[in-house]
Design a binder for these strands. Structure first.
Length: 507
RNA sequence: CGGGAUGUAGCGCAGCCCGGUUAGCGCGCUCGGUUCGGGACCGAGAAGUCGGAGGUUCAAAUCCUCUCAUCCCGACCA
């Protein structure tokens, strides 16, 4: 294999997408599996991405009038039982606390003791426990709307886990709101979906499709679930965020009642909405390449890697001095609302080794600073969105402007690349045979990357959805908001349909 | 939870079928030196209860049973 063709990540996306994903996470040092089954350790570079996601979203929630609060990790089983559909949806994946004490088992070990009178469920989501509080907080229409958000961890005892995409414990935010009318609640539900879509586009540089979930795919207990759906580089869909209109289902379960403007007691209308550390999985699979992580500047843990190059102590002193000058140039600088961070990498490794280290971590900008640059009063700059070998000498005087502009350009480049990918792999399909061919790999044994999003007509019957799922493992990802009414016939049963939906394989 | 695969040093693997000195290799790591502008080189060194438990045997990484974990496929799901 020629040196030019060597990729930092083995295997490549084309060779083995699932394995490539794992390797990117390891190469970028984002996270690792823990000794606890299904749980991950999020390492600093990965956690910094989450912190950036939190910071930006938290601001957006504030701007839309929400306040943060914190509710218990444990939910009494009796609370959980109140909403029937909710129970159905989550019962199979609940961790349950049944004891409160450990005792010496007389054999050098410990045994559980102190059985609880009522088992506690480790929250898989918090509708019921938050509902119990809301019932106390809401008495009058004057208390509404109640707009609360919580940053928390939740536990869902998943059978099959994948780093970031599905772990037994994950970090997320869950918004919970209470409204006077169904209209208000629905406006809130859609507003927060819009917030997610904006965040995905503006910060994660991921274009998404907003839409409504089908009956079978919606949140257990919700009246309506809306989602943002993103396309990964293997052309599968990833649900990146959800927003639920809960109607009065949870208000009834938790007795959230208020006296309305006519003096009558009425059940309130609630919503909930959330995004999780899964977004990091989305980020990885939407942008990264065969050389490692690719992370948009607006969400990157750091923006500029500075790699000093020198031969001896004398040069070292001069070079590090110059590096400090460059770091100073960006100290407390912002591009848009994002603070720029630099990383000085003075490890005793070759320039190439250090360069590749930062390429794999996806840092947007790399700078090499050596004696030649100092004498020219300039810096060698490389960009993560360009070929790894490509670098350009930028005079110190122009450096700040150049970098600020580049960060903006890189952010845009990632977004448009992802948008092109989404557009190129989204197809109107009206013919059943074509639909099946679209979702069938040529090599069954080792399926190549295939498929995409098929915009096809669907009659709305669950049976038709089921057939497609059985045959192709393809599901209706959502009924997009922006699809125009149009006469057609269901891709499965040929019955009349007036709108296209998004069909895709999904995570 | 069903089907399949894999667990040997931090990572990637060989050895296992056919049991037999002291369990190897590459990368990484440590120390010393030369290097550093695209994945450096020389020398020295550290690191393994062969995933775990039990069994068969004079002898187990190797054979048998159980178990745990990870990955892939399925069902389920953010």
């Amino acid at each position: 294999m020629s040196k030019q063709k060597r990729t930092a990540i083995v295997p490549t996306r084309e060779q083995d997408y699932a394995e490539w994903y794992q390797q990117v996470i390891r190469a970028a040092d984002l996270a690792e599996n823990s000794d606890v089954r299904g749980c991950m350790v999020i390492k600093p570079w990965g956690y910094a991405i989450w912190e950036n996601i939190q910071r930006v979203l938290d601001d957006m929630f504030r701007e839309t009038g929400h306040k943060n609060a914190y509710f218990p990790l444990f939910i009494p089983k009796s609370y959980f039982e109140k909403e029937a559909e909710h129970v159905d949806g989550f019962a199979k994946e609940c961790a349950v606390v049944t004891h409160s004490r450990l005792e010496d088992d007389g054999d050098g070990g410990l045994m559980v003791a102190g059985a609880l009178t009522e088992p506690l469920i480790v929250r898989p989501t918090s509708e019921t426990i938050i509902g119990a509080s809301f019932a106390k907080w809401v008495n009058s229409y004057r208390d509404l709307p109640l707009l609360i958000n919580q940053w928390a961890n939740v536990v869902r005892w998943e059978m099959r886990t994948r780093l970031f995409l599905r772990t037994a414990e994950f970090l997320w935010q869950e918004g919970h709101t209470v409204h006077e009318t169904p209209e208000d609640a629905m406006i809130e539900t859609k507003k927060m979906l819009e917030v997610y879509a904006t965040f995905a586009k503006e910060y994660l540089a991921i274009p998404v499709i907003q839409g409504e979930k089908t009956e079978g795919e919606k949140f257990p207990g919700a009246v309506d679930t809306f989602s943002i759906e993103a396309m990964m580089q293997d052309k599968k869909a990833l649900q990146a965020g959800t927003s639920h209109f809960l109607g009065q289902n949870f208000a009834k379960a938790s007795e959230i009642k208020f006296q309305n403007r006519d003096g009558e007691l009425e059940y309130a209308w609630t919503t909930s909405w959330g995004v999780s550390t899964r977004l990091i999985g989305a980020l990885i699979m939407a942008h990264s390449d065969d050389n490692g992580l690719v992370v948009p500047p607006k969400i990157a843990p750091a923006h500029i890697a500075i790699i000093p190059i020198y031969r001896d102590d004398e040069e070292r002193t001069a070079v590090l001095e110059y590096c400090a000058k460059v770091e100073e140039l960006f100290h407390r600088q912002y591009f848009e609302d994002i603070r720029v961070y630099t990383e000085l990498d003075d490890r005793d490794l070759t320039g190439g080794e250090r360069n590749w280290h930062w390429i794999k971590k996806g840092i947007p900008i790399r700078m090499e600073i050596g004696p030649r640059d100092i004498s020219a009063d300039s810096v060698m700059v490389a960009r993560r969105d360009f070929d790894p070998k490509m670098k350009q000498s930028i005079p110190f005087d122009e450096l700040k402007d150049y970098i600020m502009r580049s960060l903006r350009d890189i952010q845009d480049a990632y977004y448009f690349r992802a948008l092109d990918f989404l557009t190129d792999n989204t197809k109107n399909i009206d013919d059943k045979e074509e639909f099946y061919a679209f979702f069938t790999p040529e090599n069954e044994k080792q399926p190549e990357i295939h498929g995409g999003f098929a915009l096809s007509h669907w009659c709305g019957a669950e049976e038709c959805e089921e057939i497609i799922k059985e045959d192709l493992k393809v599901t209706v990802r959502c009924i997009p908001f922006d699809s125009e009414e149009e006469d057609g016939s269901c891709i499965v049963c040929n019955k009349p349909s007036n709108r296209r939906v998004v069909f895709a394989k999904s995570y």
